[in-house]
Design a protein around this nucleic acid. Structure first.
Length: 397
DNA sequence: TCTGGGGTCCTAGGACCC
DNA sequence: TCTGGGGTCCTAGGACCC
């Protein structure tokens, strides 16, 4: 059996937000840096050395690392850096699958004769990111997506690791079960309770036993991953399935008028993002978190898709109104809205042919158009003139 | 140890339809 | 009158990821 060469790269920027801060402020270099005050959004490797971890409470992190410099996040800068890095990804590989703001899979198989072996491509990618964006990045290379991701995690920080074809299980089996994709602390606890602490331990358990313990989907996936079976291809063009926005409210009890003000701001923000992405939503989900950090969601699915702030807000308000007793009883510490059931925006373009050599202004409102085409329509513009294809839109989004 | 903001996917029950 | 199997959609909760 001829083994294909490892050709899937997992590229992952190291301590991304913290690295951007150290890049932009020389005084932060070599020092422990924590991004985010309430909770840790990112920690530099100097801070990680003290035990600081992502998602840790800010107070706890400062106790662990009193010397750390705490800086507020600058999301716009991180987005710019991410775009620059992804441009390098795109010119490096024909297929790039972004996973988040700071990591992606690159399929470089069949590039061998053109730009070099995967190892050389990965080496060059790291050099280019370092030279052009001035950020450290770690790359894992393997024959499967899962193993490429494990490899980059093992190689961090600022590393490069190729898992050779045929050597996969020797690499994988000694690792702790927590390295498996989809094993968080709940699943890890169950596996440990069953006496399984390494990936090799999991690999020796029959699939049926894992399914019985973890459920069909998780059991089958874990069994497959422990044997390095991961048939997923690297694919671009994923579409977002939901968008959401939320606000933490702190410990002090929130008044109803405050909750409503948050809801208005969140609905407005979400509707804008929806329109900017040219999508429509049909399901509105209200998210609540209570004083004891338990959570609840309430959702409503509309008969027709919408992008209207008014409709999204109205639906969220009704869901919140119906939850009032729960909120009063348990105290609220977070409010959020998610929009699901997304589909492409229904774009309406009207072209209105005019008589020769006559111009006239038209009084067409957005409501007129929506009355005619329905609430799911996204009105982008009205094209006017004898050659509508060349005329600029008169109505903005 | 005290908890932010953005997502994905899975499970399970109930309604409803054929 | 009582009953089966299969499918889809909606709602709610939960685990997990960065």
């Amino acid at each position: 059996m001829s083994q294909p060469e490892p050709g899937i790269l997992h590229a992952d920027l190291d301590a991304f937000y913290a690295s951007v801060e150290q890049r932009d402020d020389p005084r932060l270099r070599g020092r422990p840096v924590i991004v985010g005050a309430g909770v840790v959004l990112a920690a530099s490797y100097e801070a990680k050395a003290c035990g600081v971890r992502t998602a840790m409470g800010g107070a706890h992190a400062r106790r662990l690392c009193p010397r750390a410099v705490v800086v507020p996040p600058r999301m716009a800068e991180y987005a710019n850096a991410s775009k620059a890095v992804f441009r390098i990804f795109e010119r490096t590989a024909p297929v790039v699958e972004g996973l988040s703001i700071d990591e992606a899979f690159l399929d470089v198989r069949r590039l061998g004769r053109i730009t070099g072996a995967p190892f050389d491509i990965a080496l060059r990618l790291r050099e280019e990111v370092r030279a052009e964006v001035r950020l450290p990045i770690t790359v894992g290379v393997a024959r499967t997506k899962f193993l490429a991701k494990v490899a980059s995690a093992v190689a961090k920080p600022d590393g490069l690791l190729v898992v050779p074809a045929g050597g996969e299980l020797d690499f994988l089996h000694p690792l702790p079960v927590e390295r498996l994709w989809g094993v968080g602390h709940v699943t890890a606890r169950k596996l440990h309770a069953a006496g399984l602490s390494t990936v090799g331990d999991v690999a020796r358990v029959p699939e049926a036993a894992l399914v019985a313990q973890l459920g069909p989907a998780a059991g089958r996936r874990l069994h497959a991953l422990a044997h390095n079976r991961d048939p997923r291809r690297v694919t671009s063009g994923h579409r977002r399935r939901s968008i959401g926005s939320q606000r933490a409210l702190g410990r002090s009890p929130a008044a109803w008028t405050d909750l409503d003000a948050h809801l208005v701001a969140i609905a407005d923000r979400l509707a804008r993002r929806l329109r900017a992405a040219d999508r429509v939503c049909r399901t509105v989900v209200l998210r609540l978190r209570f004083a004891d950090y338990s959570r609840a969601t309430r959702s409503h699915t509309l008969a027709e898709a919408t992008v209207e702030t008014r409709e999204i807000l109205g639906t969220a308000r009704r869901l919140l109104g119906a939850s009032r007793a729960m909120v009063d009883a348990r105290g609220i510490t977070l409010i959020g809205v998610a929009l699901g059931n997304l589909s492409d925006g229904a774009c309406v373009q009207l072209s209105l042919p005019l008589e020769r050599d006559r111009s006239r202004s038209l009084d067409v409102t957005l409501d007129d158009i929506r009355d005619r085409f329905g609430s799911g329509a996204v009105v982008r513009g009205v094209l006017v003139g004898r050659d509508p294809g060349l005329s600029p839109p008169l109505l903005p989004d």
